[in-house]
Design a protein around this nucleic acid. Structure first.
Lengths: 208, 208
DNA sequence: GTCTATAATACGATAGAC
DNA sequence: GTCTATCGTATTATAGAC
């Protein structure tokens, strides 16, 4: 019974697969996709450069697993922010923009994997699955903001634009001042609110 | 006089420096920063892998030169789009969002260099110079949209958000359907218009 | 100013011991 | 499942011929 829970030796890991994904995400946050390599991830996890190939067939598969994990985490972060924002639909949607900005500021380069890597290859079904989860969560929040008779296509389009400006603001932001994250998150939320307001104005056919 | 205008030999180039930047931009558009290498750029330009080092001290300098050229081109494209949009300030600003989307669709991965690479190192004064030109051009367009008594800081913030959502929409867009660019550009412009309208509403203190 | 050749390094991936 | 060892390849950058 002595070997059931404790690691057998120094090089043994309880769950190397999970550890590699964790270290992969950390490496991506520091260097971006350009600086990502299987060897570096392995070194960070404290194993040899051959070990990852027991868990992932090639570099691309490890990268895809990291991307899926990042998207999953973002989804959870946005959902939590909406939950915490209260009952008003506009507040809830705007809060996701602020939370996204905060996330990108923390994970810096990590997010570029999701937006700049070609996700159409093999192994990427997992990534697309997580992307659908994220989109789905936002669909619910957006549907609560738009009028009840809004078509599915228009709702999707609004999700698209909301995520776009949220992502764009957060990444531009990352370039400049890295401090005072809360102030920037608040401004990201305010920008999202402007967009929501303007869109509702257009729907109502009035102009300022 | 026979050697003054014509190339002397097969390996001779009139302006290799410019050619390297041109091919570097094309390579970035195809592969992104991760796939960028001095050797590949040299091969595309039809010279040996050592030749670029006569014109750029290292890889980073070539990359910086490409980034500066990309930003300069974007600046020109946005200015031309505003010019072509007519006299209404809102039309002119919204047009830049559409033009940006069109540019990113054409140059795909190329733009990530500008937004995801660390631009704080050496050689990057040129990049920051071009960035300032872009910001400055947008400042004029935004100032024409906002009320005359708007502070400089608020104008900068609006430029920031406008560019953010413009960039975000264009890059998200690049991920999905690559066809029907004009329709997407029109929607990018419409999204920018929503943001402008919503912001003006907030300034006027009214709600939808 | 461009070439050929090369050094030093890092990477992806595999083979075989344990 | 992880190790050590290794092959093949691509990269950055330099040296020296022309």
């Amino acid at each position: 019974m002595s070997s059931s829970t404790a690691p057998r030796r120094g090089y043994h890991h309880g769950d190397l697969r999970a550890g590699l994904i964790r270290e992969g995400i950390a490496l991506l946050a520091e260097t971006g996709v350009a600086g990502f390599s299987v060897a570096k991830v392995a070194a960070r996890a404290g194993v040899s450069s051959a070990a990852p190939y027991r868990h992932f067939p090639d570099r691309e598969a490890l990268l895809a697993a990291c991307a899926a994990a990042i998207i999953a985490e973002v989804t959870d972060v946005l959902a939590a922010a909406a939950e915490q924002a209260g009952d008003d639909p506009v507040d809830r949607l705007a809060a996701t923009a602020g939370a996204y900005a905060r996330y990108v500021l923390d994970h810096r380069a990590g997010i570029d994997l999701v937006y700049f890597h070609d996700l159409s290859g093999p192994y990427h079904e997992v990534v697309q699955e997580e992307s659908r989860r994220l989109t789905s969560a936002l669909m619910d929040l957006v549907a609560a903001v738009l009028p009840e008779d809004t078509s599915w296509a228009d709702t999707v389009e609004f999700v698209y634009v909301h995520l776009s400006m949220t992502h764009g603001y957060a990444t531009l932001l990352r370039q400049s001042t890295p401090k005072d994250a809360e102030a920037y998150a608040a401004r990201a939320a305010a920008a999202a609110r402007d967009h929501i307001t303007g869109h509702l104005m257009r729907l109502h056919g009035s102009t300022p």
